[in-house]
């Protein structure tokens, strides 16, 4: 009974805050609405008995949204909501596509005859996950590690400031400002 109530509260919060992300005017509010939606989903994952993954999602999203808030203020058209403006394009078309997608997914969810449950959750799902990652799913874990390392390199390369060699190539005489490549 308590689990059912908790499910409804968290599910409504997740979807409601998710919708608020594209409705609120202030970018600070938008970031924290997204954070609230993520925390509600983390709560739902905890409700399903996945203690470790729920906590990981919660911790990761708190950090991610705090970083996001900085980027929001850097790049947003309307950081503090002081100048209300429309930031949409093709609003009606997007809404039609989104509602259509939800209708198709909901029809599938309600009409598909789902298979019956096989097995029971392990007594310690965290232990089972760790064991899987360190044995059968070791290749998955290694691939993720390499992907994350590649991301670090990519981000540094993309975010670093371009020097004059990037702009003008190795022949510095071809550039503007007297040909010394400045």
């Amino acid at each position: 009974m308590a689990a059912t109530v908790l499910f409804w509260v968290l599910a409504v919060a997740a979807v409601g805050f998710g919708f608020a992300v594209f409705r609120l005017g202030s970018m600070a509010q938008v970031t924290f609405a997204l954070l609230a939606s993520f925390l509600a989903v983390a709560g739902l994952v905890l409700l399903l008995g996945l203690g470790y993954l729920g906590v990981v999602i919660a911790l990761m999203m708190v950090i991610e949204m705090v970083i996001m808030a900085v980027f929001m203020i850097m790049y947003m058209m309307n950081p503090a909501g002081l100048m209300p403006m429309a930031m949409y394009h093709n609003k009606a078309g997007s809404m039609t596509i989104a509602v259509g997608t939800f209708a198709v997914l909901a029809a599938g969810i309600l009409l598909v005859h789902w298979p019956v449950r096989r097995g029971v959750p392990p007594p310690d799902p965290t232990f089972a996950l760790g064991e899987a990652l360190m044995s059968g799913q070791m290749l998955t874990m290694m691939t993720l590690g390499v992907a994350l390392f590649a991301t670090i390199v990519t981000c540094v390369v993309l975010a670093t400031n371009r020097g004059r060699y990037d702009r003008f190539g190795d022949d510095l005489r071809s550039g503007p400002a007297g040909g010394d490549g400045r």
């Binding site: 594209f22 938008v30 947003m76």
Partner: peptide, 21 residues
Amino acid sequence: AAAGLFAIGLYGALSQQSIVM
């Protein structure tokens, strides 16, 4: 609930002008 979140996200990804949004 998951489909609702997915659809809202899809709406945002299609309708927002700002790359961050």
